[in-house]
Simulated scan of single mutants.
Amino acid sequence: MSGIRPSFGIGDVMALRSQVLSRSAALRDVHAASEGARAFAPAQTPGAGFAATLNTALQQVSAVQEHSSAMQVAYERGTVTDIAQVMLARQEAGVAFEATLQVRNKLLTAYQDIMRMGG
């Protein structure tokens, strides 16, 4: 057998390894930043009401969206060079917004159902 060997040397392996490690570190940084900006299970005190919980959740979604915008601006300025970080932040903001929109729709439907019952 002639055995075709790929031209993949130890330098290529080391370069690939460093890329993987840097991206992993970048993803950990984004995850840590987003965890600091939001915690979707807010701690509630016994007297906390529904409105306070909803307000806290909306503030957390807003913080995620602001973080996404800041990442995009930083990428445009050149301070953040990893597009994966920017895209991950944008996806998180999109998911948070969609979840908020779905909750709003369910609350609106529930309110309309309650108002129809009162007749």
Rank of each mutant, 00 (worst) to 15 (best):
G47F: 12
G47C: 08
G47A: 14
G47L: 13
G47H: 12
A48V: 14
A48P: 11
A48F: 13
A48Q: 15
A48R: 15
A48M: 15
A48K: 14
G49Q: 06
G49T: 11
G49N: 05
G49W: 06
G49C: 07
F50Q: 10
A51D: 11
A51Q: 11
A51C: 07
A51T: 10
A52V: 15
A52P: 10
A52N: 13
T53E: 09
T53W: 03
T53M: 06
T53Y: 06
L54S: 12
L54M: 12
L54G: 07
N55Q: 15
N55V: 12
N55G: 10
N55C: 10
N55T: 13
T56N: 05
T56H: 04
T56A: 12
T56R: 05
L58N: 15
L58T: 07
L58A: 11
L58C: 12
L58F: 09
L58G: 10
Q59N: 11
Q59I: 05
Q59H: 08
Q60P: 02
Q60F: 01
Q60W: 01
V61D: 00
S62G: 14
S62I: 02
S62E: 13
S62M: 12
S62Q: 15
A63L: 02
A63K: 01
A63G: 04
V64H: 00
V64P: 01
V64Q: 01
V64N: 00
V64G: 00
Q65S: 12
Q65M: 11
Q65Y: 06
Q65T: 07
E66A: 11
E66Q: 11
E66P: 04
E66D: 13
H67P: 05
H67E: 08
H67K: 09
H67C: 07
H67W: 10
H67Y: 13
S68P: 09
S68E: 02
S68G: 04
S69I: 09
S69Y: 09
S69K: 12
S69A: 13
A70W: 01
A70M: 07
A70N: 06
M71Q: 02
M71Y: 01
M71K: 00
M71F: 02
Q72M: 09
V73C: 04
V73N: 03
V73K: 05
A74Q: 06
A74M: 04
A74C: 05
Y75R: 03
Y75L: 04
Y75G: 03
Y75A: 03
Y75Q: 03
E76A: 15
E76G: 07
E76D: 15
E76T: 05
R77G: 07
R77F: 11
